[in-house]
Design a protein around this nucleic acid. Structure first.
Lengths: 357, 357
DNA sequence: TTGTTCTGCACAATCGATGTAGCAATCTTG
DNA sequence: CAAGATTGCTACATCGATTGTGCAGAACAA
């Protein structure tokens, strides 16, 4: 059994040089694909490649990156993995990065500005070549860090002012969702329980603000009353939403006839509270949720969902990264309304359409 | 406005050396924290650190990694992001890696053996220091690659024979789940529709095999008949499960009274078919799902779920990586049975317990 | 035969950080 | 006051791959 040259175990071009009798530069050329332009004989190159394969050689990307000032890494930061929307982001991001022959690095930052900054700096220290900033709490602070080291980056899902952004068209999506909620909710003259309430998210958050704006606008036009009192947007934390909805129900003496829930995060919290209620409580409620989850669309009360076009969000982000965009334009992508199975006239079609990517 | 020294924009220890008048070695020592042992005057070190901070210096990890033969990266490969179980893995993995001051790299491989191999090789070429292999289709092939370069790794969720593994106790979990399904399902003498069916997963997959074994065992003991004919495990693909369950229902003339669904992936597929049926169809069915999803536990038919202990899976994986384990032991972690809200006698407690991490 | 052009490859510098070896200056000790 | 110890710092080689430069030898032309 022939032992590896170094105790380490990782084969380098020097090892291969030794075993083929060629010089390290020739080996490098043969393995990096530049051998043709470096006038290496084909037979030499092939022989080296064969031996490299045989010895299980893999390029040391740290060394290559150091020399070439390119790492082959593309970074993405996002608030959390534990959410379908962001998980879909990761999945699609990875696919895009792979087609470009690079390596994806996805890190979550838990909506903590300090963690966001630390993470971006870490990624920079690994010399990522570009960065997608998804749902950052303070995109501009991250832009500053990136700009300082000349790193191409795009904001996704939440816009910033110092770099291009690709976001969901929150206003339009929320308008559609609110409209659909109003259309579907049981008619009631009760000026308290008979109205739709907005739950979850945070008012300082751009997306939430836009959705609230749409919610208010649609209610003002279609119902004629102000929605100011119907907004409960404290945080994205499920537990906070659970508390909010509980207090709401206690205040108004039961479930309202409609809820606009700002994300699946909040929806989880709401469900947590719902689970304490008897099944009959839900006979008369319609829920809209800004975000999509295939399971959530199958509850035992109608759930209207908005599915953001993750494919296009990521696609456009890459287009911007790779194109030569200047300034900080903000591209808005129209989301899609998913009507509830339980209300659908043609359920099979709707649902199938939702599921097939 | 003072311009950066190099066109690049990234400050190096040489830039800082120049601006402090110290040598690069001194700067390195001051910034890497080894200055005390290298007898650098405290005032010198502090001054260097101040300047580095001011100039926004970050260590070039490629260079450091190359020199120290340690990258600061910890890798994890998993089948997909788009799934609660794996998403939870990512989240918890990241937390563990962070407490160790390292950088997590999570990449999905879509259950494709070739992609798994390529990805592991890529991660190796970036010199990751250890690797968690989650749910790989061919763990041993990956082990071979890792062993060749002396890389510490652990299998998680699916066991291998060439490296230590930490997995869910599939047999026990599936026993509990099957038992609970039998207990909850509507009594029926129908020898076809009145029986529980097993949907999803793949028989070549260890986890599926174990769960099927448990399913059969429990049914044999508690019902006295063989479950051989009740198994439909072709693939983890949602669409395949959709087809399977549709064909099953067509064959037996309606929904069975109970389903054991092998994962939330398959559950998605099943729902896709369910959505084509009228709501009344579900009055008489109990579903058990091996995997947990807070939304899935709130369907309009009872859903019993098994929640794997992701925290412990990851924790033990790290314990193994960091300890000095030899051989390929397989640690089994007991999962938790989550009774359906709609069947629970004390729903609030159960559900709250589920949601609070 | 001498000069020119290709071929095919090797040498050596380089990327940024680290760490060993070592040098000069200062301090200690007998 | 000289030998030895200590302090504070610098020079240089190194990690592995890439790449500009250069140098033999072959092929070819004059």
């Amino acid at each position: 059994m022939k032992k590896k040259q170094k105790s380490n175990g990782k084969t380098t071009i020097y090892d291969i040089a030794r075993s083929t009798g060629a010089s390290p530069s020739t080996v490098s050329a043969a393995l990096s694909g530049t051998w043709r332009s470096r006038r290496i004989k084909e037979s030499t190159a092939l022989e080296i490649q064969r031996l490299a394969e045989e010895q299980g050689y893999t390029t040391n990307m740290q060394a290559r990156g150091l020399r070439k000032a390119r790492s082959g890494l593309v970074g993405m930061v996002l608030p959390a993995h534990f959410n379908r929307f962001y998980a879909a982001m990761s999945q699609i991001f990875e696919a895009h990065v792979r087609t470009r022959g690079m390596c994806p690095v996805v890190v979550s930052t838990l909506r903590e500005p300090e963690e966001e900054r630390r993470t971006v700096e870490t990624l920079i220290s690994y010399a990522i070549e570009s960065l997608l900033i998804v749902g950052a709490t303070d995109p501009d602070a991250l832009s500053d860090i990136c700009t300082a080291v000349n790193l191409k980056h795009v904001n996704v899902d939440l816009p910033g002012t110092k770099a291009p952004s690709v976001i969901s068209d929150n206003y339009s999506g929320a308008r559609q969702l609110t409209h659909e909620i109003l259309k579907s909710m049981p008619k009631s003259d009760d000026p308290v329980r008979g109205r739709p309430y907005f739950i979850g998210g945070a008012t300082w958050d751009f997306a939430t603000a836009e959705r609230i704006r749409a919610f208010k606008d649609v209610i003002a036009t279609e119902c004629g009353y102000s929605a100011d009192e119907l907004i409960l947007a404290q945080s994205y934390d499920p537990d906070a939403s659970a508390t909010d909805v509980r207090m709401l129900c206690e205040r108004i003496g039961g479930l309202p006839t409609a809820l606009f829930i700002n994300s699946t995060f909040s929806f989880e919290g709401v469900l947590k509270y719902f689970s304490t209620l008897p099944a009959e409580a839900f006979n008369n409620i319609v829920v809209g949720c800004y975000d999509y989850d295939p399971f959530a669309s199958f509850m035992h009360f109608p759930v209207i969902m908005v599915r953001q076009n993750v494919d296009r969000l990521v696609e456009e982000a890459f287009r911007i990264i790779e194109g030569d965009v200047d300034g900080a334009p903000c591209l808005q992508i129209e989301p899609e309304l998913i009507r509830p199975r339980t209300l659908s006239t043609s359920p099979s079609e709707t649902f199938h359409h939702n599921m097939t990517r």
